Computed example of a mutant assay.
Amino acid sequence: MTENKNLDKSYKPPRNTSLPKVKAVRRRQTNNAAEISAAALAARKASENGISHLRINTDSKFLIDSYNKWIPHWEANGWKTTNGKPVVYRTEFEELRKALEGLDVTWNHVSGHQGIEGNEMTDYLAQMGINRSNVA
């Protein structure tokens, strides 16, 4: 995690969430699975709080490209890649699609580990989740 001296780690905005990795990523404990699960969680929290327009900032081009470009093709192809292999994160993407239903979503790519406060806080919360999992 990049250390940002301007980031007050004691401050936790009320809608930010840090979950143990076991709860956050039930199937695969990979960066991609965590990114997909985090976006789905953000969408569910937005819906629970009556938010209908959501901007998702992520440093994952994989997530953005998957949602905007590849998922429609995978679905049309029976959730197979162009090589005929099953889509690895199909279940996670299906959960994301369900969570985003009814929301107007804008995807925004941000550079990772560049001192962007929200991205740094996300990394910090992810680290907290990992640490909580390792203690339990």
Rank of each mutant, 00 (worst) to 15 (best):
S60E: 01
L19R: 03
T2E: 06
F62M: 08
K9N: 08
V87Q: 05
H109M: 00
S37E: 13
K98F: 15
K69P: 01
I64P: 02
W107H: 10
Y124L: 07
E48I: 03
V25A: 14
G129D: 08
W70C: 08
G102L: 04
N6S: 12
V135L: 08
H73G: 01
A39M: 12
V110W: 01
N4Y: 04
E117F: 03
S18N: 00
G78N: 02
G102D: 06
N16Y: 15
Y124S: 02
K85C: 02
I71Y: 06
A40M: 10
N134V: 15
S133I: 07
I51T: 03
Y67S: 05
P14V: 11
S111N: 15
T2F: 08
N108W: 09
W74G: 09
K69D: 10
E94F: 08
K12D: 11
P13T: 03
A126Y: 11
T58K: 00
T82F: 10
N4I: 13
Y67P: 02
Q29C: 07
S111C: 08
P86R: 06
N31H: 13
L96A: 14
L100E: 07
R44M: 10
R132Y: 03
N77Y: 13
P86A: 13
K21Y: 14
A46V: 10
E120G: 01
S133F: 07
A39F: 08
K9W: 04
A126D: 09
S18D: 04
N119M: 15
T58A: 00
M121T: 10
Y11L: 11
Y89S: 07
L103F: 14
A38V: 12
T81F: 03
T122V: 12
R132E: 13
E117Q: 08
P20H: 04
R97Y: 03
M1F: 07
H113G: 01
I116N: 14
N68W: 05
T91S: 05
G118C: 12
N4M: 05
L41N: 11
N131F: 07
N57F: 14
R97W: 03
A76Q: 03
